[in-house]
Write a protein that binds this DNA or RNA. Structure first.
Lengths: 240, 240
DNA sequence: TAGTAATGTTGCTTTATTAGCGATTCTAGA
DNA sequence: TCTAGAATCGCTAATAAAGCAACATTACTA
């Protein structure tokens, strides 16, 4: 469930995290004004937030004055991903799931996006599955769908208010109906959006759910159940 | 080099990141008042910062009202570590360095701490090297020492002002002298603080340096040079 | 089960921080 | 060398944040 705004939120922190998010999702170092344009914010304000982040070591400025993630961001990242045990618990479990010969994925939902912590098709080294895929729209992802289904319908409506919804051309009601189906099933089965007749099956992990686990590939309807059972067996090992 | 404070830093963002750092480095979910005590800050302020972070998905509140990292933190972490390419570039390089039969490590410096992104002794799976070690005092680590040596002496004095320095009982001047030695050599060779006659050799990577690469184990003086050469060859593959 | 202590959160008011405008500095490219 | 765009600064007014006191919630013990 998404937390409600408290009585007196800190707007500077909201702006600062938005700046940091934009920075973290930029594949290349980015300039102060460009970032302000992306955020539709005043350049002076963004400059001050970036300079503050740089002072803290969360961001760093490259030789041509552009900004990118700094060592402090990597330390925070390591703490949250590694020291929390999420990746450490997950890697052997994910390795085990590869026995089915499908793509194995672990992802987390943030707003309307899914970040794939791990995504390994058959044939590549497990450790190479880290960071292969970045952020994708949540509604284009089986993991995204199963994690969205853990939200209230009202929350989903807020996330997608006045927005086109990728893969759901009929809009919010189509998405809400799909999420209801997923809730009833307890897992998501989604058609992959390419020419192959591939599907994703995905379950959530953690209580409350904070990550999703998926297998994808050529999965006929009849093969769904045993794969879901394997995912459900694996999920508590990761959820912590 | 540590960035200088700009003309108008954002104090709320500084406080917010301090709160987030304290949260990320807590091995267990932590309560609002406990966190305020650790930060020597007003509980109301910390509660508001935490609530704001929770609203953003960076933190989440557990069932017993304590706070821990949330999905948004994991997404930011994944973006900065994985999508930036740091881990993806590093893992095959680190795997290659294991041919020497020593412990291989990659770490980043933040303030007075080193976070080990990777630390794999001989005999364990490379992917298990992620997250094995958390935060350590920088001065107890070869990687910390080599990265501290990239700072101005004044910066180092600021970091350690009025503080005891782990492994440097004679204080700041002893540390400054060691850092000067490391600068002259271009690498760090540090005795491991246990009963074995083990040493670490470490070099920095990136320009400006933002991570350190190390080998540790039984390394006689005569074996230092070829190991340093291998580290120096490996470093640009990671530094990006 | 009731009481107590600790914790989490709110409302209000004051104050300090932040925002934005205009100016200045810096850098890259022609 | 000049120009344009980007980065950053200084100043001032406005608003957001801080802190105090009060209230709400929870957990533990007798």
């Amino acid at each position: 469930m998404r937390a409600k705004l408290n009585a007196q939120p800190n707007q500077s922190l909201i702006d600062g995290i938005a700046t940091l998010q934009a920075l973290a999702t930029s594949p290349e170092p980015v300039g102060c004004r460009e970032l302000a344009r992306r955020l539709d914010a005043d350049p002076t304000k963004i400059n001050r937030l970036l300079k503050t982040l740089a002072y803290l070591g969360i961001a760093r400025q490259t030789a041509n004055r552009k900004y990118t993630a700094g060592a402090g961001m990597h330390v925070l990242a390591a703490q949250s991903l590694f020291a929390s045990g999420l990746i450490r618990r997950a890697l052997p479990v994910l390795e085990g799931l590869r026995r089915f010969g499908h793509t194995v994925a672990l992802g987390v939902l943030w707003g309307d996006s899914v970040s794939y912590l791990f995504h390994a098709p058959p044939g590549i080294e497990a450790s190479a599955g880290l960071g292969r895929i970045g952020l994708l729209p949540a509604t284009t992802s089986g993991i995204g769908i199963v994690l969205l289904s853990e939200h209230d319908d009202d929350e989903v409506r807020d996330i997608y208010r006045d927005r086109e919804i990728p893969m759901f051309p009929d809009g919010i009601e189509q998405l809400i109906a799909k999420l209801a189906e997923v809730r009833a099933l307890g897992y998501a089965r989604v058609h992959v959006a390419d020419e192959r007749d591939h599907h994703v099956v995905a379950v959530s992990t953690g209580d409350p759910a904070h990550a999703g686990l998926a297998l994808s590939g050529w999965i006929p309807e009849a093969a769904t159940e045993p794969l879901v059972a394997a995912l459900r067996e694996a999920a508590p090992e990761i959820g912590g």
